[in-house]
């Protein structure tokens, strides 16, 4: 679904942001990209829809080589949720905003209507269709931006910091959308700093540091303490820290797993 081979990216300033990254992600996988600011997470994510082009190596999404397509063409394969909703919302109503992507992609009217309705339901925006997005709070605008990407119904979804600036309810919406999409065989890749969100909603965590992948595995494997993890600027999820402080040999990363281990003691 996503195939990245020996990807190198150098900014025009000469700074190497990605230094030989190879990654394969299968349909239905939920992958979180983590690491400190400047580690290359967003740079990597922006290669998936062609906003950035490889300096060396290649990126394929759903069989397409991103170097051979425009960003607008790649939008049919990859939905991309940007961190700041205010850099994309423009329409007079929430419904128009959400319909913008599907319209650009040339979906027929009935499919478009169905997708918009469903995206609004999934983000609990039903009833706000005719409201101007700028009358909403930042957390709500964040949900409109998410709905706008969901409505594009792409095989791959990239979410850049989906929980930053979102409230509790917004985080739950993102979490629900992620698991629902993966359940339908869609590939979800998120860039995030929220480790608890990561541990609870993703089955694979990829840690980037200095433009390279330094860890790749399940949350339980990846979040185990270690020098490279600290160096990558990653603070483990709360329950990982708790189970390690308790000296458990098999730490847990989520509430359910933690209590299950506690019960099986």
């Amino acid at each position: 679904m996503i195939r990245i081979d020996s990807l190198v990216y150098r900014y025009p300033t000469g700074v190497t942001a990605l230094d030989g990254v190879s990654l394969r992600v299968e349909p239905g996988e939920r992958v979180a990209l983590i690491g400190r600011n400047g580690a290359g997470k967003t740079t990597l994510a922006r290669h998936l829809n062609g906003i950035l082009r490889p300096t060396a190596g290649s990126v394929h999404v759903d069989g397409w080589d991103t170097a051979e397509h425009t960003v607008a063409e790649l939008a049919a394969k990859v939905g991309y949720l940007f961190q700041n909703p205010d850099e994309q919302l423009f329409a007079r109503t929430v419904a128009e905003e959400v319909a913008f992507g599907p319209r650009n992609l040339g979906y027929p009217g009935d499919r478009r209507a169905r997708l918009v309705r469903r995206a609004l339901e999934d983000t609990r925006l039903t009833g706000l269709e005719e409201v101007h997005p700028y009358q909403l709070s930042l957390a709500e605008r964040k949900r409109v931006a998410l709905a706008a990407v969901l409505a594009m119904d792409t095989p791959i979804l990239v979410l850049d910091e989906p929980t930053t600036g979102a409230d509790h309810a917004g985080v739950r919406d993102v979490a629900a959308a992620v698991s629902e999409l993966a359940g339908r065989g869609r590939t979800v890749l998120a860039v995030t700093h929220d480790m608890d969100f990561c541990a609870e909603n993703f089955d694979r965590i990829v840690v980037l540091a200095g433009g390279r992948i330094v860890r790749d595995g399940s949350p339980d494997e990846v979040f185990r303490a270690g020098a490279d993890l600290a160096q990558a600027g990653v603070e483990p999820p709360q329950l990982m820290r708790l189970s390690e402080a308790l000296g458990w040999s098999r730490p847990a990363t989520t509430v359910d797993a933690f209590v299950d281990r506690l019960a099986s003691r």
Binding site: D167, H168, A169, V171, D196, P237, Q238, L239, L242, V255, F258, V259
Partner: peptide, 10 residues
């Protein structure tokens, strides 16, 4: 609509 800590939740 306020998420408590995971310590409390656990």
């Amino acid at each position: 609509g306020v998420a408590g800590t995971r310590y409390t939740a656990a």
